[in-house]
Structures are given as C-alpha cells and as structure tokens.
Amino acid sequence: MNIKLAKNYGFCFGVKRAIKIAESTQNASTIGPLIHNNEEIMRLKKNFNVETLEDISHVSGTKKAIIRTHGIPKQDLQFLKEKKVDIIDATCPYVTKPQKICEKMSKEGYDIVIFGDEMHPEVKGVKSYASGKVHVVLHVSELAALKLSARVAVVSQTTRKVEEFKEIVSYLISHYKEVRVFNTICNATFENQDAARELSKESDVMVVVGGKNSSNTKQLLHISKEFCSDSYLIESERELEASWFEGKEQCGITAGASTPDWIIKKIIEKISNFKV
C-alpha cells in the first residue's frame, strides 16, 4: 500500500509560535489548552512544566499565564491584569485580527455577525471585543431570524470553510444596505483544506490526524469524507486499526494545524508495519 502525505498539513504559523513561547517560558500555566492537541499538551507539561488551567477562576497562585492560541475573552484578560499575573500572550495574530475588527466596527455603530461556533474558545474571545450588538451564526439559515441594522460587519472564525462563509456573506449583501466583509479565515486553513481535498480524491483510505476538539481538524475530516468515504480522525497511532487498510492501495494522510510532526511520524510508521 502506498502512503502519501497531503501537500500542506500540520502545524500552522500561530501554533508553532505558541509552542515556542511555551517552551521558552516554562513553569507557567495556560488559560485553557494552549492548542487543541492533547498529545502535545502532555509533552509540554512533562518537559517544560506548562500546566493547563481549565477556567480563569483557577488562576489563584499563578505567577505566569500564557494566553492560548485561540485567545481569551476581553474580561478575562482584564481579570489577569487585576490579579497582577505576568501575562505572556500566545494568541495567534490571525485570531487577534477579528478581535480588533469587532472592537473597531462595533464602536463605529455596526452590528457584528460572526460566522463560527459560539462555544469555540476563539469565537468566545472575538465576541467579547464587540461593544454593541453581536450575533454568532453557524449556518446561513440562522440569518433570517436576526434583527440587524442597516449597517453590518461580518467576520469568520479562522478555521471555517470558505464556501460556507461565502454563503453567509451573499445572504447579508442581498438583504442589508451596507455590509462590511472581513475575510478572517487563516491562509493555512485554505491551504490545508485544498490539499486534503485533492489527496482524498485519489485515496482509498484517508487518515486525518489531530485533536478531536479541533475545529480545523474536523473540517479536514468533513472534506476528506466528501471524496473518500473511508476517512478516519485519530489523535495518536494507538487509535489505528489494521482493518481500515485491508484491500486498500492508496492511503492519504493529512493533519490539523495543532498536530506536531512527531505524532505524524509515529502514525506513518505504524501504518507501514500493517500487513494488508
């Protein structure tokens, strides 16, 4: 069986930056998981004593706090400042961008529409920077129920599919007088999704590697399944099953933006040793 990696996959700029910050800081705590990859989080804890606080209320006694790649709500950042915690900001610059846009446009009187998952930490943070009316939608069908003013500004969660964002934008433009559109989908997301799409078209089986709570990884799985029904999402080589590869000739592998190379190498090694 031939094993082929996607043209673009794995660690994005923002995640690489956050990992370097955590490794150089050491003996610190992150507010929420630094990235959506449990294996890498455990490595940082073991080798660099980087702990994870699941909630801002657990910050008592913390001297150094690393802001996760997804960012945190504006009020939580203020809370850390009031507690005199040494703040190390590892928020991805691509996430900081929609935060600033929402803050600016809401001050100028625009209603804000955020395309994304309202429960995702990135969206929670972005939403907190809007001082006026702000709505979070995941599907174009949700827009009809919104009561928006004539002036609307729309941004996207950085890891969403561009095709779906276009649907949101198209609806808003056709229903409202003034719509400011800010394409805040990360370039790495575009590239990884395109590469997964192309590889899945020529594969008998696809393995998508990444955190199961990672938005961009789940998008890769969804795209892969469109063209290759035998597509699987795993976090480590321990989840691989030999039966997935029986009778297959072409195995494609892609990985989410929070997946380090050392995990991908282990997965390739184990697949290579399967007798299929």
Rank of each mutant, 00 (worst) to 15 (best):
T217P: 14
V276N: 11
S229D: 09
A195M: 11
D111E: 13
V209D: 03
V208G: 04
V134W: 01
I21D: 00
E51N: 15
I35G: 11
A145T: 13
D76S: 05
T184L: 06
E241S: 10
L80G: 08
A196Y: 00
G61H: 09
R238V: 12
K147M: 09
K83M: 07
D55R: 08
L34V: 04
K266C: 06
A22H: 02
V207A: 01
D194Y: 14
T189I: 10
K266I: 07
V209Q: 08
A255I: 03
V179M: 07
T217Q: 12
E237R: 06
L80A: 08
C186F: 08
T30E: 04
S174C: 06
R197P: 01
Y9S: 00
V59I: 15
K265C: 04
K84I: 00
D111R: 07
I267T: 11
V15M: 14
K212I: 04
G247S: 08
T184S: 12
E118S: 12
L143W: 10
K124S: 02
A242G: 00
A257C: 13
I263M: 13
S131I: 09
F227H: 14
L220S: 07
P260Q: 10
H175A: 13
L240D: 08
V59C: 07
T158S: 15
N273F: 08
I112T: 05
M206P: 00
P73K: 01
K225F: 03
K248N: 04
C251I: 15
T184D: 04
S106C: 03
V155T: 14
R160Q: 15
D117T: 07
I72Q: 02
V85D: 10
R17A: 03
A257G: 06
V136C: 11
V134Q: 02
A144P: 00
G32P: 14
P121W: 01
H120E: 01
D55G: 03
F274H: 02
F13R: 08
E40F: 06
A150F: 10
L138N: 12
L5D: 05
V113Y: 10
N27I: 11
A130D: 05
V152K: 07
Q26L: 02
S60T: 12
E51F: 15
K97W: 06
S272A: 14
K83D: 01
P93C: 09
V134M: 02
G32R: 11
G61I: 10
Q219W: 06
Y94D: 00
E191A: 09
F48I: 04
S203C: 12
L221R: 07
S128D: 09
A18Q: 10
D76W: 02
V126L: 01
V126R: 01
S156D: 10
S224V: 01
I271N: 06
T217G: 08
F190D: 12
K201F: 07
V276L: 14
R17G: 04
I223Q: 04
M119K: 08
M1F: 09
G252E: 03
I87P: 00
K201I: 11
L44W: 06
G256E: 09
D117I: 07
S243F: 04
